[in-house]
Amino acid sequence: MQLDTPKPSPYPKSRVQLSFNKLRGKKLESVQPTSLADLRCGQHAVLGDLDVADELRRRLMEMGFFPGSRIDATGCAPGGDPRIYRVDGSEIALRAETAAQIRIRPLAAAAD
């Protein structure tokens, strides 16, 4: 089944939304990706919040992961995990479990 227009979610972008997307799985292509793990190879988005521990957040920022930056999914390791992202001029590999904790917005919605 395919939805024609994605309805705005009544919930804020939260874990409820995340598990909801997970439940409905890959069939709902049109549901907007909410975490970096949903981003497919070749797609791009704008980074949102980094829902990770402080230590890891600082480290990600040092690697160029700032909320508001453009991020491109450029590839992955054989087997699909870890994935490779291009952000702020460098290519960084992350495991899917870390990528799932990083929120994203579609590029069109970016204010800058």
Binding site: L56, R59, L60, P82, E91, L94, R95, T98
Partner: peptide, 17 residues
Amino acid sequence: LRSTILRRERSTFILEL
């Protein structure tokens, strides 16, 4: 080690290519 003395900490992987 993963199930005993190093259980509490998480393994992470961030690699610049």
